[in-house]
Amino acid sequence: MINLVYNEMIKIVRKRRLLIIAAIIVVLVALFTYAQMKRVQSLQEQLGTTDWRSQLQQQIIDTQNRLNSSGLSEEWRKFLQIRLQQQQYYLDHDINPSAPGAPTFMRMFAENSIDLFIPLMVMVIAADLVSSEASGGTIKLLLTRPVKRWKILLSKYIAMILSVSFILLSLGVISYFISGVVFGFAGWTMPLLTGFSVQGEELDTTNVHILSQWKYLLMEFGLVWFVSIIVGTLTFMLSVLMKSTAAVMGIMLAALISGTILSNMVSSWESAKYLFMVNLRLTDYVSGMAPPIDGMTLGFSMTVLAVWGLVALMISFLVFTKRDVY
């Protein structure tokens, strides 16, 4: 089995997939670091001070102003109110929510890329794991070895998990070092609040507690990893079912993008919450953002994702071990 996984890893590495992904991450992180730097600068110019308290105060005033303006949709108003409560909480308790620093940047980068960017990178690895063997004809050589088919597929699945873990690790490392150069490397022990939950329109703060940033980060990266594995598994299934890598990518891309769109507009279509793509933003539960549909919780979303993943895995193995190869 180790030999088989080793084979698969060699193929992924020699196809330069990991290198390309790392390069994309470097470029994007550099881009966002720059954007973040500009934002901080312009905020400072606007406020004429570097004091985060007045920044936060300013944000609160901004939010209040937007709340007072007319023509706001009900959902948006609700969201802003929750946000306002949260910001007020930070201010009252003297906690800087976005103290720049590499760990903070890492956290924000992970939170913002969990539902599209990271799944996209995972897709690049997983989409052609099986379909490329089928379209390249090498599947015939692979399946005429004295190895059971399920073992071959399992080795590919393990290789996918390893690659996904590698991607997340490099995402962490790259974003830490690049942003660290600009914002400094400090901030691991900064206290953050978590445990917000949204009950109807109220921000429920009964479970709110303080967590140092490194624990918070660990938690979020755990969730990002979980989401990545599920997206990887779904892509993997499509890759088993289809010969064309382009088709696999197309379908996954459509699903992911529709997920980000749906999240913004499905609050009244309740059963949409069973779709995997509206459940991808697991980190929002940690940071206390309102879920797209009432009643969604971290446990709920993880269960939905796990079910989708398990079903996909079962289909993959059933089809792969039974199928005639032409």
Binding site: R14, K15, G136, G137, T138, K140, L141, T144
Partner: peptide, 12 residues
Amino acid sequence: CIVENPELYPYL
């Protein structure tokens, strides 16, 4: 065996 064309991994 070789079934149809001898397809191997071109990038290796």
